[in-house]
Simulated assay, not measured.
Amino acid sequence: MTATAPAFSLCVYCGSRPGAQPAYAETARAVGRWIGEHGGQLVYGGGRNGLMGEVARATLEAGGRVVGIIPQALVDKEMANHDCTELHVVETMHERKRLMAEHANAFLALPGGIGTFEEFFEVWTWRQLGYHDKPIGLLNQGGYYDGLVNFMQTGVDQQFMGPWQMELVRIDADWQRLLPELVQAGGVTPADRLEQI
Rank of each mutant, 00 (worst) to 15 (best):
A109I: 03
V149S: 00
E102M: 13
W126A: 00
V169M: 08
A173Q: 07
E95F: 13
A106T: 02
L129G: 08
P111A: 05
A101L: 06
Q128I: 12
D133M: 10
G115T: 04
V149K: 01
G130V: 06
I136E: 00
G155W: 07
P111I: 04
K97M: 12
T125F: 03
Q128C: 10
Q141T: 06
G142M: 08
G142P: 02
A101Y: 01
G137M: 00
A106S: 05
D172N: 12
F151R: 12
E91P: 07
W164N: 14
D133V: 08
L148K: 06
P135T: 08
V149Y: 01
G147C: 09
F160M: 13
G112C: 05
W164A: 15
Y145L: 02
W164Q: 15
G147Y: 05
Q165L: 11
D157L: 11
L129N: 09
N140M: 10
A173H: 07
A104Q: 01
P135R: 02
T154E: 13
D157T: 13
V169L: 09
G155Q: 10
D133P: 03
F107C: 02
W164V: 13
R96E: 07
G112P: 01
Q159M: 13
H94A: 14
L138Y: 01
D146M: 06
D133C: 12
G147P: 03
L110Q: 01
F151H: 15
A101N: 03
